[in-house]
Design a protein around this nucleic acid. Structure first.
Length: 509
RNA sequence: CGCGGGGUGGAGCAGCCCGGUAGCUCGCAAGGCUCAUAACCUUGAGGUCGCAGGUUCAAAUCCUGCCCCCGCAACCA
């Protein structure tokens, strides 16, 4: 039976241009999604932007524009970047979208209210006029805000609160059983939070302090806070609580939220509690990635080491694959990683250019000389080897160890290079020579299929050079890697290889 | 006792969950090949796997304690 997958990423906050952290998450999700599609799953993949909130409001004021104008200016930066990177999302949702997003959010709010989990209370807190936000006593140094050197004032305001504290026990049970969290240490972390007990969370702010957002239904003086607004994108994109609900993507799919470690707790605790109150099923799993440092240090504007994805793309002449390869191979899923210019160049040269690209070229150039003909003999040994490679590859993906899957391919390419030297086909003649070369072409065919989720365009390029009949269709969303394609010598209508060309050109100094 | 991650040859990392010849990339040395994008292959030098105990026939891997880095601590991916 066909499996159905609903994959989402966090929605990005567009108060500034996208950076490498955004890219890490989207590439991770995209690789996973492409693998799902290639194995034949029915997939829906959603990304988007979280456009409301005080920060957008403030940034807009600074730049003397309306919040709407600010997000309309910034959101295309994200959309264009993701298009260039080949992020194969089916829907890009924007929380400022009153047609797609708002109806679901408003309906959800009412459902929560009906369920009795929302309550209006007076909240008393310390407000720093410099930060323009509430601070806690722990933030203060000698009673002063460390950023602004002023004493915060005690302010009372009305907030709607969501009853999370009562869900502690239920959430423990949920995390123990149904709700899977990868990597597992994030689950332990969440349990530690639960042990401390949960507090109710603020679900709205007065319009006077937060105006850029969705008004609370029936209480126009209040604006929704991030939770009910942003998290809800995962179901508003499916039209939930409207006349065009696409329930099959939620009720009958495996739901995977790909998110960063900073928002893990909200997805692990608040989101399920909201859904429970609204009578909607709980998602299946969270895939939580770490953060990227830049040249070993925390990425920050003040250090000036923020890496812009556009610069990386430009460095490789607009080819997204070196960056996709780097993030997939160098950053183990769940761990923090580092972005280094030196390292990405190193990897490009050694792995992609000298090992992969050159391997393909050395085979194809010889085959071209011999007239492009292909003759793959059946072979028990190669059969077994290919089966094993695919098995390990699948296992890595199933455990979300994407770095292992791609590293396995590069290791195989390594072995091919060594085997090519010891086979020394340039010393052979006739049928022996043709057979050896064809064997390498067949191995490269498998490798290009395995690389497809990671570096789609380059993998397709490989397959085109190999002259594969299916090469043209490889980037289509309904392309599936069939049993034949995974079997040694089983692509029967593949008789000739194509014209060789340089897969990864040397970089200009 | 707030929470978590990390400390492995010159640099950067994997391995640790499921103990059993210490692996990868770059760099370095020597040799080989000549099909190929001056690419490829082989061999070698270089590590008491943060420190100290413990469990075990056997520990980078499990347990305990300590030291040092780095994040997070409710809206910075």
């Amino acid at each position: 039976m066909k499996k159905r997958q609903y994959v989402t990423t966090a929605i990005d906050y567009p108060n500034a241009a996208p950076h490498m952290g955004h890219v890490l998450e989207k590439v991770l999700a995209d690789v996973l999604v492409r693998w799902f599609r290639l194995r034949g799953d029915e997939v829906r993949f959603q990304i988007g932007t979280d456009e409301h909130g005080i920060k957008i409001q403030q940034t807009a004021e600074k730049e003397r524009m309306t919040p709407k104008a600010l997000v309309d200016r910034n959101v295309p930066l994200f959309q264009d970047l993701y298009r260039t990177l080949g992020i194969s999302a089916d829907l890009f949702i924007r929380t400022s979208d009153k047609k797609v997003h708002w109806p679901t959010v408003e309906a959800l709010w009412k459902k929560l209210q009906d369920a009795g989990v929302l309550e209006k209370r007076t909240y008393t807190g310390l407000y720093c006029s410099g930060c323009e936000r509430f601070v806690t006593k722990k933030d203060l140094v000698d009673g002063l805000c460390p950023d602004h050197q002023i004493a915060p004032q005690e302010v009372k305001e009305e907030n709607w609160f969501f009853a999370l504290s009562t869900e502690t026990t239920w959430l423990k049970g949920l995390l123990k059983k149904e709700y899977k969290i990868t990597p597992s240490f994030r689950k332990n972390e969440t349990f530690a939070l639960l042990e401390q007990g949960l507090e109710d969370v603020s679900f709205s702010r007065p319009k006077s302090s937060l105006s850029w957002g969705i008004p609370v239904p029936g209480d126009e003086e209040q604006t929704m806070y991030v939770w009910c607004d942003a998290l809800t994108n995962y179901i508003s994109g499916l039209g939930y609580f409207t006349d065009h609900e696409e329930k099959k993507w939620w009720d009958d799919a495996t739901i995977t939220h790909v998110i960063g470690k900073d928002i893990a707790r909200f997805h692990a605790l608040i989101w399920p509690a909201m859904l429970k109150a609204a009578g909607v099923r709980i998602p299946d799993q969270l895939l939580i990635h770490g953060f990227l440092t830049s040249e070993g240090q925390k990425m920050s504007k003040s250090l000036g080491n923020v890496v812009k994805p556009e610069e990386v793309l430009a460095h490789f002449n607009g080819n997204p694959d070196p960056l996709r390869f780097y993030l997939s191979a160098e950053v183990p899923v769940g761990n923090d990683g580092d972005f280094s210019w030196k390292r990405i160049d190193e990897l490009y040269d050694s792995k992609l250019r000298n090992q992969l690209g050159n391997m393909l070229n050395r085979v194809l150039v010889m085959m071209k000389k011999d007239g492009f003909g292909l003759q793959i003999n059946s072979s028990r040994a190669f059969d077994d080897q290919v089966v094993l490679e695919w098995k390990q590859y699948d296992e890595a993906f199933e455990n979300f160890e994407l770095h292992k899957a791609i590293q396995q391919v590069t290791v195989w390419i390594d072995r091919m290079n060594a085997a090519f030297n010891s086979s020394a086909p340039w010393k052979l003649e006739g049928a022996a020579r043709a057979n050896v070369l064809s064997e390498f072409a067949e191995m490269l065919r498998h490798a290009s299929l395995m690389l497809l989720p990671f570096i789609p365009e380059s993998a397709q390029n490989m397959s085109t050079q190999l002259g594969l009949p299916y090469a043209k269709k490889m980037l289509e969303k309904d392309f599936v890697i069939t049993k034949e394609m995974r079997t040694w010598g089983a692509v029967k209508d593949w008789k000739r290889v194509g014209e060789p060309s340089i897969l990864f050109p040397p970089l200009l100094p």
